[in-house]
Simulated scan of single mutants.
Amino acid sequence: MYVKPLGAECRRIWQRGDHALIGVSAGNSYFNQERLTKLLKWAGHSFAEIDVVYVDTHLDTMLIADGRAPLHAAKSSRSTIKDLRRRIRRSVELVDPDGVRLRVRSLTEVMDLPEYQKVRLSTDLAMREDPEFAATCEKMVRQVVGHRSTGDGNVMTKAHIEAGLSYLQAEAPLFVDSPSIFDVRSSVVCYHMLTPITDQLCRRDSSFRCAPENGYLIVRPTELGES
């Protein structure tokens, strides 16, 4: 696996090997069966504890922004999430058949945790009152929605931006303080690419930063390269 920590502090946290948070997006073609299995195998050899969180929120909202009818959007979202759960389950059965080290939860389940709700208060406040963080969040949403829009001819609309921001608002606490949310000493968030929000949160010169023991790794199969 190609692994790149985002700075010296992230490398230190990675080397401790306490905990990895692996976020999996529904409807993202990157997370096929082979890549999920490779990622979980790597994490199983690198960390004492692993949480896999799949995003199951605001998918229908984005489809409605695409012009889908609400009932069709809800049905499509359920099918997408069901398929993702199946892929994750197959990978977990291969990597951790006894279910000892890998925990799998939906983002909806995590959102019910009191620790998540505490961190959510601070991230929501930063989105409203920290201009740098708010701009970074909007930049990330525009990147994601922009890639999405080019695939099917849809143009980016205000509804897309609002749906994307709601999606990111639900996800952001995981990037900000995963040690508190998952009750671990330290944690690294693993993703296959650099994103605007992780780039800002791990910088010491930014106004709104991640928790001290929260790190970030770019992790992907070696054959996909370093770019």
Rank of each mutant, 00 (worst) to 15 (best):
L125M: 10
L125G: 04
L125N: 10
L125W: 11
A126Q: 02
A126D: 02
A126L: 04
A126I: 02
A126S: 06
M127K: 07
M127D: 02
M127I: 07
M127F: 07
R128S: 10
E129K: 14
E129N: 12
E129I: 12
E129R: 11
D130T: 11
D130E: 14
D130P: 02
P131Q: 09
P131C: 08
E132P: 03
E132F: 04
F133V: 07
A134N: 12
A134M: 07
A135S: 15
A135L: 07
A135V: 01
T136G: 10
C137G: 08
C137H: 01
E138H: 12
K139G: 01
K139C: 06
M140R: 11
V141K: 04
V141W: 02
R142M: 10
R142D: 03
Q143F: 10
Q143K: 12
Q143C: 04
V144C: 03
V144W: 06
V145E: 12
V145A: 14
V145L: 11
V145Y: 02
H147P: 00
H147G: 11
H147E: 09
R148S: 11
S149D: 08
S149K: 04
S149Y: 00
T150G: 13
G151Y: 05
G151T: 13
G151I: 13
D152K: 14
D152E: 11
D152Q: 12
D152P: 01
G153S: 11
G153E: 08
G153M: 11
G153F: 08
N154P: 00
N154G: 13
N154F: 05
M156C: 12
T157A: 08
K158V: 13
K158P: 03
K158I: 12
K158S: 15
K158Q: 14
A159F: 05
H160M: 10
I161D: 01
I161Q: 04
I161V: 15
A163R: 09
G164P: 09
G164F: 08
G164I: 09
L165G: 01
L165K: 04
S166E: 13
S166G: 15
Y167F: 14
Y167P: 00
Y167E: 03
L168C: 06
L168D: 01
L168P: 01
Q169R: 13
A170P: 00
A170K: 01
A170W: 00
E171W: 02
E171S: 05
A172D: 01
P173I: 07
F175S: 06
F175N: 06
V176H: 08
D177N: 15
D177M: 07
D177R: 07
D177S: 12
S178H: 06
S178N: 11
S178A: 15
S178D: 05
P179G: 06
P179R: 05
P179E: 04
S180N: 12
S180W: 02
S180C: 10
S180L: 15
